[in-house]
Design a protein around this nucleic acid. Structure first.
Length: 267
DNA sequence: AATGGGACCTGCGCGC
DNA sequence: TGCGCGCAGGTCCCAT
């Protein structure tokens, strides 16, 4: 799943390769990912635009094309961006940068969305988005939880609350901090929240440094896998032995999402 | 206000 | 070997 570390990895790779480059053409294999405008309008607006800047907000990737023209891409669950010489499997939209450089938006499930906007900050998802975890101090982080009765793990995944955390890193963070995923946020002691902050930040930084987690279909834009899978402690480890205490990792559904945790280590 | 469930979508793993 | 069922999950939307 492309969460903060995966989108950051994509951002860094594509910034290096595509900033300053011109989009020669757009091939729309499937118009469903394109929101707001017709395929024709989308294609015509983008054609011949130069990529000025690429940045990330939460799980949203944004290409600045002009002062008042942004291309926003949300990969949702299964979307990946592959920069290669050929059309890739499940390509839905292909941005042709010339010289055999095709940026493929691949998405088997067609949940990914791309849109053109004059002001990326006005995109509803951005307007309601919580703060960036990597741009917060621990005091600010702890203050977020004041008076929150919600379960901690679904809360971490709530994009209005905190930006960029999805099902993988929320599970990993609460395991690292020794917090039960169903603990009520306002019932967690301050020192435990501080631990959660340290865990979350270090996990995100580590994941970014190794190119994200290639669970399911995620790949870096050069087609290689991320390397954080081997560091995952609980995600998709249902029934396996806990790396800390050797007891069995359990799977529950919390906030409607599959959640693996160690009942012994996470009280 | 917070929580839960359905919809969107389809490849894939599993059971028979 | 082959078929069909249902899970997986980010976000939005609706209901309670």
């Amino acid at each position: 799943m492309p969460e903060l570390p995966e989108v950051q990895t994509i951002k860094e790779y594509l910034s290096e390769k595509l900033v300053g480059e011109q989009i020669k053409n757009v091939v729309i294999k499937d118009e469903r990912p394109i929101k707001g405008v017709s395929s024709e309008e989308f294609k015509e607006t983008i054609k011949s635009k130069q990529v000025k800047e690429i940045f990330r907000r939460g799980k949203l990737l944004v290409f600045k094309l002009e002062e008042k023209l942004f291309l926003a891409i949300h990969l949702r669950i299964n979307g990946i961006l592959i920069l290669s010489e050929k059309e890739e499997r499940f390509a839905r939209v292909i941005f042709d940068f010339g010289k055999n450089r095709l940026l493929n938006l691949c998405d088997s499930r067609v949940f990914a969305q791309v849109q053109l906007v004059s002001d990326w900050r006005k995109i509803p998802i951005v307007e309601k988005m919580g703060p960036e975890p990597l741009e917060m101090e621990k005091e600010e982080f702890a203050a977020l939880f004041k008076g929150k009765k919600a379960k901690i793990k679904p809360l971490l995944m709530d994009q209005h609350f905190l930006a960029g955390i999805g099902n993988i890193y929320a599970q990993e963070a609460v395991f690292c901090a020794g917090i039960n995923p169903e603990s009520r946020a306002n019932a967690i002691e301050p020192q435990r929240l501080e631990k959660l902050y340290q865990c979350l930040i270090s996990i995100l930084k580590k994941a970014i440094s190794v190119g994200g987690s290639s669970v399911d279909v995620y790949l870096r834009p050069d087609g290689t896998k991320g390397r954080y899978e081997s560091f995952l402690k609980v995600y998709q480890r249902n029934g396996q032995a806990c790396f800390k205490c050797n007891s069995q990792i359990k799977r529950i559904v919390s906030g409607g999402r599959g959640t693996c945790f160690c009942p012994k280590c996470q009280k």
